[in-house]
Amino acid sequence: MLSHFVIGATSGLYIGDLLFYAISFIILIALVKHFAWGPVTKMMDERANKISGDLDYAEKSRNEATDLAAKRQAELNKSQTEATNIVTTARQNGEKQRQTIVDQAQSDVTTLKANAQKDIVQERADALKSAQDDVAALSIEIASKIIQKELNATDQKALIDSYIEGLGKQNGAR
């Protein structure tokens, strides 16, 4: 038992063990590195990179989203103003058009009324003329019947006309 406390007291230093452990430990490190350490640390690095990348990406996305929201708000405001403009313009146009139509109608009505008045005046003049003619013819017929004499309608017409004129004047004076 004491031999363990005094190094190499009985069987000498086991130099071979030192060599064996040094070499096999290096081999063990190489094996562990190749089969476990390498892949795992690579995976851990990858994960760390991915996490930091994802965080960056999330940050970027959030900024983009904020930008988009601001842009959308601006667009919304712009389109609202535009809509107001459009409505205002349409209302003004409508107003103008209405005014035009009303003016047009008024002028039409005025023209129509003037025409109608002219027509009426014309009609009355025509009617008066035709009545004059009728009365002349009738008077001639009556006179010829009375005097049993064929009066030349054309010769006498001037006379009758002046007579009727005189009647008319009498009527007008009355």
Binding site: S11, G12, Y14, I15, G16, D17, F20, Y21, S24
Partner: peptide
Amino acid sequence: GIPFNITNVVSGL
């Protein structure tokens, strides 16, 4: 000529 302690070698291995 190098002494090896087989106990250590085997259990270390």
